[in-house]
Design a protein around this nucleic acid. Structure first.
Lengths: 225, 225
DNA sequence: CCTGCTGCAACTGGATCCAACAGTTATGCT
DNA sequence: AGCATAACTGTTGGATCCAGTTGCAGCAGG
């Protein structure tokens, strides 16, 4: 969002690995061997290790001395706790958005909502997930609190994306409900009603969290091996 | 809090540097030269660099390619935004604490409050800051949401401690007000009133944030050079 | 006196090298 | 035969090395 500052190789590298993890490409509990990653990315081990340190700080990976890095498994409790916090923060963002939103941001928000709705109705697999992110990001942008935005983003990145997908993909009815909830948020923001916006967003996120928690519960923890 | 897992050299190192920064020992805007740090800690540059990567991920330090690490300066806007978020989260923690607190945590909370009160009344310089942390941490522990705790902690570490100190130390009246506010939070939690607890904590944190913001404003940004 | 160029020194980024440690398998002793 | 120990393999941690880039100082020119 603000790559105004110059980025180095390891920043890209960390992001790449991060992406592969949240995409579910690399499963939880998997050991990340430095040499293998080095070979894969045509680099030496040094930048790999620095990237892993970054991921450790972000909580994506656990780093045990002399034993290497394993991707942190997500427990049901992690999901519940994380979404509880996220609900609060996104609710706050919605409330702020309702009071401070400008016309440009409002039109962005409307576009995102519309895109999401269409993606669901036409049941386009990859598109609606992206549209969903776009909607939430639009709200956060409208809120105008950069720190808040970053905090939510960090929280969001703590969960592999396939969790979100998997939990909702199963039932098209749930997706329809999501459309309704997004609409409620948008409507409250349009009405400039902070309390209503906060409440709508809170409920929305909490619901999603509960669904994901149950989904994870059913399949056990995502920690492999 | 959970150093159950084995820690390595760089973990300690990162924490040490972090501490020196939030203590104000290393001023904002200062360049951290790897060679110097290496000599200082009797290590090679490699672990230093990894530690800096961690700090970069935590937002404590900015890492520009071929130019090294500088500690991030704190702008007034950063303070306002950060404390706004923190107020929300700590308010949430207080609300959770009010509903879920157990007897052990409650006594811890009472102890922390009393310690804080005494430290202020006897005007012991170093003690009250520590007692303050203790109080807030007790609330978060009582809330029982580990993720929330960690998120607040990350947020807290984003600000050098001497900011907090400096802004409050000047006026003993402000400290007395803080005692009152802590008491209000404690009382609401004792009454098991989530809404009141949230509100009291929110106000408390927002006030502190506003004071710090104004203090920073007066002295300009903390970015040296 | 100020501005722009050029060469040098210092520092960072990445690669390579060696030592230490964990896990595993094989071996010897009871 | 079973258990304990010893050797081996694979992997990480930290040190050293080399190349590329940046920033600064000094100098020439306007």
């Amino acid at each position: 969002m603000s790559p105004r500052v110059r980025r180095g190789v390891v920043d890209d590298l960390a992001e790449a690995i991060q992406t592969r993890i949240i995409a579910g490409d690399i499963p939880a509990g998997a050991r990340l061997r430095q040499e293998q990653l080095a070979a894969e990315y045509r680099l030496s081990r040094t930048p790999i290790r620095e990237a892993l340190r970054k991921l450790q700080a972000e909580g994506t990976v656990e780093l045990v001395p002399n034993q290497g890095a394993v991707v942190r498994g997500t427990t049901v409790r992690d999901v519940r706790e994380g979404y509880e916090v996220r609900a609060e923060l996104e609710g706050m963002a919605a409330a702020l958005a309702a009071t401070w939103i400008t016309d440009v941001h409002l039109s962005q928000l409307r576009d995102a909502e519309a895109l999401f709705r269409r993606a669901i109705e036409d049941s386009q697999p990859g598109t609606w997930a992206r549209a969903n992110d776009q909607f939430h990001e639009a709200v956060q942008a409208a809120a105008g609190n950069e720190r808040l935005r970053r905090t939510i983003s960090d929280l969001h990145k703590a969960f592999p994306r396939h969790l979100t997908w998997g939990a909702l993909e199963a039932d098209s009815n749930l997706l329809a409900q999501n459309v309704e909830q997004h609409h409620a948020v948008l409507e409250a923001i349009e009405r400039r009603d902070p309390d209503a916006a906060r409440d709508a967003m809170r409920r929305h996120v909490l619901r999603a969290g509960e669904l994901i928690a149950r989904w994870v519960e059913r399949r056990g923890t995502t920690t492999a091996h």
